[in-house]
C-alpha cells in the first residue's frame, strides 16, 4: 500500500535508545559530532568507535541494517580517501610513476575515513531510533532559545509536522493523477529523457494546484480551531526527562571526559 510508506528511516523496535527523550538524543548527537572533530589520535577513534558500538547494541537495530546506510556515501568516502592519499606531501612511502603515497597521506586518509564513517553511523542512529514526530518535538524544544532572535522555531516545527502528515496524502494523489493521465494516453515509460521529463508536467501542475487548495482549506480549519501562533500553546504530551535520560546524559559526560583526556595525552 502506498500509504504505508514510512518517512525517514525509523526502525520500529523497542529498545533503551528508542525510549530516550528526543532532546537527549539530539544533544548527544551534537556533542558526539563535535568530539569526533577534536580527536587526533587512533586511541581517540578507538574510544569513539567503542561508544558507537555500545549505542548500536543498545538500539536493537541490526548492525547490518545500519551499515547499509553507508552505501549512499561510498562515493564521498572514496573521493576523500583518494584526495588525501595522493595529494598530501611528506615522507614518501610508495611511488610509481606519478602516483606518490606518503606516510602523512595514509595517516590523514585513514583518519578521515574513520571520522566520516563514525559520524554517519552515529547520526543515522538518531533517525533510526526516533520517529519524525518526536524529532520535530525535540527540535522545537532544543532550539527554543532561537526565539530570542525572533526566529519562529515552534512555527517551523509545526510546519515540519504538517508536511510529514501530508506526504502520504500527496503521494496518493500523485498516484491518482498519474493513473488519470495514463488513461488519457500520457506515456511515462518513454526511453527519450526529454519526453520523459515532459510527461511529468501534466502531473506537477495539478498536484501544485491541489496542494495549494489543500493548504488553504487547512489554514481555515486551523484558524477555526483557535490557532493564532504556536508560541502560547500547551501540550498534550509535554516532553519530560526520565531517569534513563539522566543516566544517558551522565554516560555521555563520561565519554566526553575520556575523549578530552585522550586528546590531551
Amino acid at each position: 500500500m502506498i500509504r504505508d510508506i514510512t518517512i525517514g528511516q525509523y526502525y520500529n523496535v523497542e529498545s533503551k535508545l528508542h525510549s530516550l527523550d528526543p532532546r537527549m538524543k539530539l544533544n548527544a548527537v551534537l556533542v558526539f559530532i563535535i568530539s569526533v572533530f577534536f580527536i587526533k589520535s587512533y586511541v581517540g577513534y578507538f574510544i569513539a568507535s567503542l561508544f558507537l558500538l555500545f549505542c548500536i547494541k543498545l538500539s536493537n537495530v541490526p548492525i547490518r541494517y545500519i551499515v547499509r546506510g553507508l552505501k549512499s556515501i561510498v562515493f564521498l568516502l572514496f573521493l576523500s580517501v583518494f584526495l588525501n592519499l595522493f595529494f598530501t606531501e611528506g615522507r614518501v612511502l610508495f611511488s610509481y610513476s606519478f602516483f606518490v603515497i606518503t606516510y602523512e597521506g595514509l595517516d590523514v586518509a585513514v583518519k578521515m575515513m574513520l571520522r566520516l564513517i563514525i559520524l554517519i553511523l552515529f547520526s543515522s542512529l538518531l533517525t533510526l531510533t526516533t520517529t519524525p514526530m518526536e524529532l520535530t518535538d525535540g527540535i522545537d524544544y532544543n532550539l527554543s532559545f532561537f526565539k530570542i532572535f525572533k526566529i519562529p522555531v515552534s512555527d517551523i516545527a509545526l510546519m515540519m509536522s504538517i508536511a510529514l502528515r501530508f506526504i502520504p496524502i500527496l503521494i496518493e494523489e500523485v498516484d491518482k493523477i498519474m493513473k488519470a493521465q495514463i488513461s488519457r494516453g500520457v506515456r511515462f515509460d518513454d526511453k527519450n529523457l526529454i519526453k520523459k521529463v515532459k510527461a511529468y508536467i501534466p502531473i506537477l501542475v495539478p498536484i501544485f494546484v491541489s496542494a495549494f487548495r489543500r493548504s488553504n482549506d487547512l489554514a481555515i480549519a486551523m484558524e477555526s480551531r483557535c490557532y493564532i501562533d504556536s508560541d502560547n500553546r500547551t501540550k498534550l504530551n509535554p516532553l519530560a526527562y526520565k531517569k534513563s535520560d539522566y543516566l544517558a546524559y551522565s554516560f555521555l559526560f563520561v565519554y566526553l571526559i575520556t575523549i578530552i583526556l585522550v586528546c590531551r595525552l
Binding site: M133, R165, R214, D217, R225, I228, R233, L236
Partner: peptide, 21 residues
C-alpha cells in the same frame, strides 16, 4: 483530509485544546 493537522489521532483532538491553552 484537509482539516486534520496532526499525524497522531490523540494529538489531533488535542490540537484545538493546545491552542486555547
Amino acid at each position: 483530509d484537509n482539516q486534520i493537522v496532526s499525524s497522531i489521532v490523540e494529538e489531533e483532538i488535542a490540537f484545538g485544546l493546545e491552542n486555547i491553552q
